[in-house]
Write a protein that binds this DNA or RNA. Structure first.
Lengths: 340, 340
DNA sequence: TTGTAAGCGTTATCAA
DNA sequence: TTGATAACGCTTACAA
């Protein structure tokens, strides 16, 4: 049992250094406004006591946390992990700390997390996607919380966002798929109701089909939660249907990897028997066999620039324009000509 | 430009409800100690004002944050993401919030993050691995911060830990590899100097070799940072050496996936031309082609039980024994007999 | 069951 | 350049 020693406070330091608490505070926050002599004395005292400022007290007094909150759907999705890593690094460079919370793709949980982070005094917020209740939007507006939406573009431009055109990107990919002669298409999509990215990608497929003169009936859609196994099971359902598709497009790479696994388990060869595509271009996309045709999204760049944009919103207090990043089609082995 | 409305405080709620601030506080924290009538009145006022308690103020007054901090090497590693997700869920169930920080595998950054989280009043800390400076260990002891170490076992039992025997697990896998007739082995390891898990796994390989009568010279080791590409490049170095190994063991699945990719790029067939093994059993291990032989670690269970153990340390203030979880060998297609 | 009032450890304003 | 001192918004004895 070690003796419980209370953390040293400003007062302890002040007493040891023979100055007032105000001076200690200044030595720590605005060192240039002190005589070199007292500054040294204070910093010595800080060191010998191992003093670290109490965060809560500092927040109360200064009404600033230097903290940014981010709420992502899940930590298990590599694209968010990658984007957040870059986001965090850029924030650190600017003296900010990142608080991460995850919503498990549940809107109610997201709301709760938003309120928690705001109560914790987050100076700004990074959110994913646009789907959000009016109540929570009003809350953020009323409280005047600088907020940036990422991984999607707010086409109405009613709030700052950084992302890419999910619909256009998916449409471009679908055009390629159709260009390979595929007519019976399928889409394994994330749950669309609460996920604007999923809806936009779905719409992109439809747009490409319409442009090519295909009807919406030529598309079978399976919605499923995130996860490799879910992708695999979705593929099952497609394959046991009356007229199986010749190409299966997936709303993200993880679902696509699952679909490819199941295809192999069913004795199918990709892309000879069925073409499969993804979205995101996570690392495994290139490692899969055959390599996955997908849409490359610059996640790390998005994270970095999201940090810059959010800080700009916070300091300038001016409206910062939305930032559109471009995506790249990555045509790899999993997409081939229709042979049926 | 919206009008900046300051967040409502306890006082606002109290005035609207016609009670004292103490009563509002009680209505929120110990509702059963109030008359149903006043409680309703207070909660109504809370709702109409959209009141949310100020976290910093609450912390200052109660000297408790209900916050647990976790510092992981990187968010990009799926094993930590998965473990933390479970950790967080279990904490939430118990009314705690998780703060995550990452150290980018840098000990200095880890120290800084520890100090940051402590200054923020983390009631407890989850740390990965044992490698830590005396200074920071002393700091944690002095401050009496409940701390749990995960993903490894503290064999000296000088502090509570939850994890598995990395050395024994890797040794068991190496025995299998040797049992397949491999004599020239290689190990692609994470940077060992600052990573006890990496060192333990390395030692496990050596122990298995010694037991089988092989000499340490029969093992070539390449140390490399985390990442698929790094695994691929490490494989390159091994393969262009004088006597390439017949089996390449990897310190984790991500390195192994990289190694398998490069092997394929070099025109090698796994396991005919070279066997490859991993460690962790992340999801892609089963999806890889051939599927990766690896060591299964119950990451989610570890996260869940880590939360329980840490809460136990915090409340009981008693020393909680270290928890050893068991691992499973997963023999899959990437390991085959030595044919050279 | 409810109210009063004293902190909690900083920062920031105002004087000196 | 430094020091007093009043906030900051909440919890929690202690009283009533």
């Amino acid at each position: 049992m070690s003796i419980l020693r209370p953390a040293p406070t400003l007062d302890d330091v002040a007493r040891l250094a023979g100055v007032s608490t105000a001076t200690v505070s200044r030595a720590l926050n605005v060192p240039d406004k002190l005589s070199a002599d007292t500054k040294d004395r204070v910093l010595d005292a800080v060191r010998t006591l191992g003093y670290a400022p109490n965060f809560a007290a500092r927040v109360m007094a200064s009404r600033k946390t230097n903290t940014i909150g981010a709420i992502i759907p899940t930590m298990e999705n590599a694209i968010f992990a990658q984007g957040l890593q870059a986001f965090q690094e850029e924030l650190r460079l600017n003296g900010y700390t990142l608080l991460v919370a995850s919503s498990a793709y549940d809107p109610n949980m997201e709301e709760e997390q938003i309120r928690t982070l705001v109560a914790r005094g987050a100076d700004g917020l990074l959110l994913i996607g646009l789907d959000r209740s009016d109540a929570i939007n009003a809350f953020l507006r009323d409280r005047n919380i600088p907020t940036l939406v990422a991984w999607t573009l707010d086409q109405t431009n009613s709030r700052p966002s950084i992302g890419f055109d999910n619909r256009a990107a998916m449409m471009a990919l679908a055009q390629k798929v159709i260009g390979f002669g595929h007519r019976r298409l399928a889409l394994i999509s994330a749950i669309a109701r609460t996920n604007d990215r999923a809806r936009a990608r779905w719409q992109g497929v439809l747009d490409a089909m319409e442009q090519a003169g295909l009807s919406a009936e030529d598309l079978t859609v399976v919605e499923t939660p995130y996860g490799i196994d879910n992708g695999a099971n979705a593929f099952d359902r497609l394959w046991t249907a009356d007229r199986p598709p010749t190409a299966v497009m997936c709303g993200n790479d993880v679902l696509a990897i699952g679909a490819m696994r199941r295809a192999r388990e069913l004795g199918l060869e990709v892309p000879r028997d069925v073409s499969i595509t993804g979205f995101d271009d996570i690392e495994i996309a290139q490692v899969a066999h055959p390599a996955l045709t997908t849409v490359h999204v610059p996640h790390a760049e998005m994270g970095r620039r999201a940090a810059q944009a959010l800080l700009a919103i916070m300091t300038k207090a001016a409206d910062v324009p939305s930032i559109a990043l471009s995506t790249d089609l990555k045509l790899r082995g999993s997409l081939g000509p229709n042979t049926r």
